[in-house]
Deep mutational scan, measured.
Amino acid sequence: KKKYVIKVYFEDTGKEVEIEAESKEEALEAAKRLAEELGLKIKKVEIYP
């Protein structure tokens, strides 16, 4: 089964997080949740198959 690796870059902090997920949708949801939890804004998202 294919996994996606999503790199999320946050504004202000210069922080980046990698998330593995089964689908792009799932990964983007996780990225949004994470940003909310951390109180950060997402600057850029890169998706690698």
Rank of each mutant, 00 (worst) to 15 (best):
E20H: 11
A30P: 00
Y48Q: 10
L40D: 03
S23F: 09
Y4R: 01
E25N: 06
G39V: 02
A27R: 00
K3Q: 11
E18N: 07
K1N: 13
G39L: 02
L34Q: 03
A27P: 01
K2S: 12
E11S: 05
P49W: 09
E22S: 05
V8P: 00
F10V: 01
E16P: 08
I19R: 02
I6S: 02
K2E: 15
K3G: 08
K3W: 13
E25Y: 13
Y4D: 01
K24T: 12
I47V: 14
E18Q: 13
K7G: 01
E18H: 08
Y9V: 11
A31Q: 01
S23W: 05
Y9R: 04
E29F: 14
I47S: 03
A27T: 02
V17T: 14
K43G: 09
E26P: 01
G39A: 03
F10I: 01
K7D: 00
A21Q: 03
Y4K: 01
V5L: 12
G39P: 00
Y9W: 15
V5A: 07
E26A: 14
E36T: 13
P49Y: 15
E11N: 11
S23G: 04
E18T: 07
A31N: 00
K3E: 07
K7M: 04
E29I: 14
R33E: 04
V5F: 12
A35F: 03
T13S: 15
K32A: 13
G14F: 14
I6D: 00
E29H: 06
R33Y: 12
V8A: 02
V45R: 00
A30M: 15
K7R: 15
A30D: 06
V45Q: 02
L38D: 02
A35Q: 03
Y48N: 07
L38V: 05
I47Y: 05
Y9H: 07
G39C: 06
S23Q: 04
A30N: 13
V5T: 08
L38W: 06
K24V: 11
L38C: 04
K1V: 12
E20T: 08
K3C: 14
G14V: 14
L34C: 03
I6K: 00
E25W: 07
V17Q: 06
K3I: 08
P49I: 13
E11H: 14
K44I: 11
V8N: 00
Y9P: 00
A35W: 02
R33M: 09
R33S: 05
K32C: 03
L34V: 15
I19H: 02
K2N: 10
A30H: 10
G39M: 04
E20M: 13
A30Q: 08
E36M: 08
E37R: 10
E46R: 02
K24H: 09
K15Q: 06
K41N: 12
V17D: 03
K41Y: 12
I42W: 02
R33L: 07
L40S: 04
L40K: 05
K32N: 11
E22V: 08
I19D: 01
L28E: 06
Y48T: 07
K32R: 04
L28G: 04
I6P: 00
F10P: 00
Y48S: 05
E46V: 14
P49C: 15
T13V: 09
R33H: 11
K43V: 11
L40V: 11
I19W: 15
K41E: 13
E37V: 07
E29P: 02
E18D: 12
E37Q: 13
K44T: 09
A31E: 00
K24D: 04
A31L: 03
P49F: 08
L40T: 03
S23P: 00
Y48A: 09
A31K: 00
R33C: 08
I42G: 00
V5G: 04
E16I: 15
Y4G: 01
K7W: 04
R33F: 04
K15C: 01
I42T: 00
E16T: 12
I47M: 10
E26Y: 06
E37M: 05
D12M: 11
K43C: 07
A35L: 02
K2Y: 07
K15A: 07
D12R: 10
E37F: 10
I19S: 02
E22W: 06
I6Y: 09
A30Y: 11
K32I: 13
I6G: 04
Y4T: 04
A30S: 10
L28Q: 04
Y48L: 11
V8H: 00
R33W: 07
E20A: 10
A35C: 10
L28D: 04
E16D: 15
E16Y: 08
E11L: 06
K7I: 06
F10T: 01
K2F: 15
E22D: 10
K41V: 14
K3A: 09
E29V: 08
E20R: 07
E25I: 08
G14T: 13
I47D: 03
V8D: 00
L38Q: 04
P49G: 05
E22M: 04
T13Q: 07
K3F: 11
L38M: 12
K1F: 10
I6N: 00
E25M: 11
L28M: 11
V45W: 13
R33V: 09
V8K: 00
G14Y: 15
E11M: 15
A35M: 02
E37N: 09
E36Q: 13
E37T: 12
I42E: 00
V17R: 09
K44V: 07
K15T: 15
